[in-house]
């Protein structure tokens, strides 16, 4: 009976109750969770993720997409791509999801104070950045220019569209959205998001860049940022690797000497630039 608290197995999930499931896009949904045990606070840092377990199906890493200022509800926005994500979407309010977390490193929101912030993101990559945007907005005066550069495949794939439109309407935020393929009545920009980096809106020598999206997009984004003169140590990227534990035990997420689950997922690009250059590391 001694030291029972010290003996808690970090691989065992805690049950959380689904409050709400809402469709965001044809393939993307958001789930709100509250602790099933008691309404206990769940604090996290923007950029951190949870391991979410679907009964009998499996457990996957999903970033937290909600507001860090609301510790009661944990929000996750997920793109359904395979077995666990599809099973998760079939769940409804009142059902349980197992949660372990929060894990991993966070976006350097506080370190960016006093500087411009440029957020470069594509597709579902906006979800892990939304908590950082909320936190920056709640302390807007502490930052210089803030730009959100977002790319989606088509206008129908623009995630959090209402929020982006709202932010775009504000005078203290620059929001640029581009799509790979224009459909319907889209009259906005067409082309890759990394093209927007060259357009300005931030002072490259006084900027922190937060980058999240498909790895290929991040490669081009980092290149374009470097071209504008943003140094590697002020570029941050969030990496994706297979993860079976989130806590450094399973080995799946290794990138050279880094465990992406605990040394990442958010890395200062200067720390991993040399690894990025090596294929299949």
């Amino acid at each position: 009976m001694k030291e029972m608290t010290a003996l808690k197995d970090p691989m065992v999930p805690a049950p959380f109750r689904i409050e709400r499931v809402r469709k965001e896009l044809s393939d993307t949904f958001t789930i709100d969770l509250v602790s099933a045990e008691r309404r206990r606070a769940f604090s996290f840092l923007p950029g951190q993720f949870n391991m979410l377990y679907v009964f009998g199906v499996g457990e996957i890493p999903i970033s937290i997409s909600g507001d860090p200022a609301d510790p009661e509800t944990i929000v996750h926005t997920t793109r359904a791509v395979g077995s666990v994500t599809n099973a998760m979407w079939k769940l409804g309010a009142g059902q349980t999801i197992g949660v372990r977390g929060p894990f991993g490193t966070s976006w350097p929101v506080e370190k960016a104070e006093g500087l411009d912030v440029v957020i470069v993101t594509g597709g579902i990559g906006l979800a892990p950045l939304r908590p950082a945007i909320y936190q920056i907005m709640s302390n807007r005066a502490a930052y210089g220019n803030v730009c959100i550069l977002y790319g989606a495949r088509t206008p129908e794939d623009i995630l959090f569209r209402k929020e982006l439109e709202k932010w775009r309407g504000q005078f203290d935020l620059q929001v640029d959205v581009t799509v790979d393929y224009a459909t319907g009545r889209w009259a906005g920009r067409v082309g890759v998001v990394t093209k927007l980096i060259g357009r300005g809106g931030f002072d490259p020598h006084q900027t922190v860049a937060l980058v999240c999206g498909p790895e290929i997009m991040m490669r081009f984004a980092v290149e374009a940022l470097a071209e504008r003169g943003v140094p590697n140590e002020r570029i941050y990227v969030s990496l994706e690797r297979n993860m079976k534990c989130g806590i450094g035990f399973c080995g799946h997420c290794q990138l050279g000497g880094d465990f992406v689950c605990k040394d990442g997922p958010v890395f200062g690009f200067d720390k991993i630039a040399h690894k990025f250059a090596i294929q299949e590391l």
Partner: peptide
């Protein structure tokens, strides 16, 4: 030390286990 996790359920579908 690498491991993976396997999920199993019984026939009734009301019990599930996680195995490392």
């Amino acid at each position: 030390f690498c491991s993976t996790v396997e999920d199993v359920t019984d026939l009734s579908g009301s019990n599930a286990e996680r195995w490392r």
